[in-house]
């Protein structure tokens, strides 16, 4: 419990820091005014520019964290995150296609459709009749789907005019630039519904962790529960992608990071800490990306890529030592 409080406190500090630090550094007084509806440039900077961006970062990070932790638990593999298995890049590609073609469907729907198509493809292609599918095969097939979506994305990029290509490049990297309250409401609204849906299934997730046979013996409809959990997780990651782009590695890192920080054991608290850790990683990565090098605003995807890749390499080398994987 104490560690959960520490995590929440860290999150609050990171939020305050993100509101205050940027091209123009503000003081705590401005934060006070900004929150309570004062006007003046500092208060407006906070209310119109930074607060929605922070809200989107928190919401998208939490959604990605929840999605990653759910899939990692479900497949019993720390590498089974939506960003490794190509779900987020499928969602991102769907949005890129929609923008290129000029489709007017709401982006969260397009993104969810892309993520689900990628997930279904991964499951269908990894499945071999009459045999159990090892999680490693799912991860590898997911990587292959990721390669294909990346190839299609690169292909679309080269078909776009130069200005459109810059925009598309930014979008495919994952970026939180120019997010407004509309985006924030979108991710928090959709995220809250999906998180509630996930909360209703936490008991099933806990039972599945005991093993499929035992869970079935305890009266759980195993296949149905697995599918529902996977669909919720994919929808969560797609909701994150719809506002932030396919930001790499947040979903991969959030689960293990959250568990490590809070020491949580039960599936419910583990998911909660994964959401908090995802939100924190997203917020800090965005802060460093836009304020780390003065005068240079990097898209957040660059920062999480630079952070997440060494994490993945470290994780791989550690698992070699332990003889896992």
């Amino acid at each position: 419990m104490k560690r959960v409080i520490v995590l929440v406190a860290l999150l609050v500090v990171a939020t305050a820091a993100s509101l205050l630090i940027g091209d123009v550094n503000l003081g705590l007084g401005a934060l006070w005014q900004g929150v309570w509806g004062g006007d003046g440039p500092a208060a407006l900077t906070i209310r119109v520019i930074r607060a929605p961006r922070v809200a989107v970062a928190l919401g998208a990070g939490a959604a990605l964290g929840l999605s990653g932790a759910t899939l990692q638990t479900l497949l019993r593999n720390p590498l089974a995150a939506p960003d490794i298995m190509g779900f987020t890049s499928g969602a991102g590609l769907a949005i890129l296609v929609a923008i290129t073609v000029g489709l007017t469907l709401p982006l969260p729907l397009v993104s969810a459709a892309g993520g689900l198509v990628a997930a279904i493809l991964v499951v269908a292609l990894a499945h071999r009749p009459g045999r159990a599918t090892p999680a490693a095969t799912v991860v590898l097939v997911g990587l292959g789907i990721g390669f294909t979506t990346t190839a299609i994305g690169t292909f679309l990029m080269t078909r776009l005019p130069s200005a459109g290509a810059t925009e598309a490049q930014r979008w495919l990297t994952g970026s939180l630039a120019a997010r407004d309250w509309g985006h924030a409401c979108q991710i928090w609204g959709i995220g809250a519904v999906l998180a509630l849906l996930l909360a209703l299934q936490v008991r099933g997730l806990g039972l599945l962790e005991l093993g499929n046979d035992l869970a079935a013996g305890l009266g759980l409809r195993v296949e149905r529960t697995r599918w529902m959990l996977a669909a919720t997780a994919v929808a969560l990651s797609a909701a994150g992608v719809a506002v932030a782009g396919p930001v790499p590695f947040v979903a991969l890192m959030a689960g293990p990071l959250g568990t490590r920080m809070t020491g949580a054991q039960r599936p419910g608290t583990r998911l909660t800490s994964a959401a908090a850790a995802g939100a924190g990683v997203m917020l800090l990565a965005d802060l460093v990306a836009r304020a780390g090098i003065p005068g240079l605003q990097l898209p957040i995807g660059v920062m999480t890529g630079a952070l997440g890749a060494p994490y993945l390499l470290w994780r791989l080398s550690r698992e070699i030592e332990r003889g896992e994987l």
Binding site: V139, A309, P310, L312
Partner: peptide
């Protein structure tokens, strides 16, 4: 293969 391929994916991302 998983390990090596993921190490490659990480390096590519970086």
């Amino acid at each position: 293969p998983v390990r090596l391929t993921l190490a490659g994916a990480a390096l590519n991302a970086l």
